[in-house]
């Protein structure tokens, strides 16, 4: 066999292997979509139908009329907006402070900040709940939003690493032109920082979108529920109507899939560039 043929066979084999794995990876989504379009009777067929002959789009309308999903979407997006804003602003300022200014104790404080990433969430969860309930913040969005305005160790770290690679000459030039510290940050550095800002925005978005425990603990009134908690609540009210549950799940997952599609380079690149060096 020539090397060329061998190579072709090799490539074909790899493609075959990868496609099978890709299918396994996609099956849950396809099954969700297919179930979401089935009638009640079709759903309980065994062997199951892979794709309904007459897709029932009505399921989506039903799901929306049985639970206030539009409301949950608005709530989730409101939270997203305020949390992302907080993270972006606070992490940029903090990373700027840690990377561009000399002050006593800087290295120690930076190390302490990194160490906070190791604090297990379950330890801080209970005192924070008690604190927020003393402040009468339970059943409001404040416990979920306010902490975002005080930075996040991981994002600050990410951004500070990025800032360290930007030469200080740019700052100096702007300083000579009479810009103050905030102007330098806003006019000179932020435009360059866009890639790491995108990573923070995308990570925060998916984090908030998937967060279940926070809203579960803090929100009591159904009108305030996020999509995650609303969907979990929907399960208990519509126990076995899997077709409706799957249409609701599809509605919840679509924005996440879209964001993933748009930001895939940043996400995968971001993870890979965390650079566990070999």
């Amino acid at each position: 066999m020539s090397i060329r043929t061998k190579r072709y066979i090799g490539a074909a084999g790899s493609h075959l292997g990868l496609s099978v794995l890709a299918l396994i990876c996609l099956i849950p989504f396809l099954w969700m979509l297919s179930t979401s379009l089935k009638t009640k009777q079709n759903m309980w067929l065994f062997p199951p139908q892979f794709w309904p002959v007459h897709p029932r789009w009505q399921n989506y309308i039903d799901a929306f009329s049985f639970a206030p999903f539009a409301r949950y979407i608005t709530n989730t997006l409101t939270l997203e907006f305020f949390i992302i804003l907080g993270q972006v602003v606070s992490c940029t300022l903090i990373a700027y402070g840690f990377s561009r200014f000399k002050f006593r104790g800087r290295e120690v404080l930076f190390f302490v900040m990194l160490a906070t990433m190791l604090i297990p969430e379950q330890v801080t969860m209970i005192p924070l709940f008690l604190l927020f309930s003393k402040m009468n913040w339970v059943d409001t969005y404040l416990p979920l939003i306010v902490p975002a305005y005080f930075g996040n160790a991981f994002y600050v770290f990410l951004m500070r690493q990025y800032l360290m690679t930007i030469p200080k000459d740019l700052d100096e030039a702007a300083k000579i032109d009479g810009a103050n510290e905030l102007q330098i940050l806003w006019r000179v550095l932020v435009p360059i920082l866009r890639p790491s800002l995108t990573i923070i925005i995308v990570y925060t978005f998916t984090g908030v979108y998937n967060d279940f425990m926070g809203p579960l603990i803090y929100l009591n009134t159904p009108e305030k529920f996020t999509l995650a908690v609303g969907l979990a609540n929907f399960v208990s009210s519509r126990g076995t109507e899997w077709n409706l549950l799957m249409s609701a799940s599809t509605v919840v997952l679509v924005p996440l899939l879209l964001i993933y599609y748009v930001a895939q380079r940043n996400l995968i690149g971001g993870i890979a560039s965390l650079g566990i060096k070999g």
């Binding site: 849950p28 969907l231 549950l245 997952l253 996440l256």
Partner: peptide
């Protein structure tokens, strides 16, 4: 990236 409630329900099914 897809964690959380929605995909858990799909698994349940």
């Amino acid at each position: 990236v897809i964690t959380g409630v929605a995909i858990s329900m799909v698994w349940m099914w």
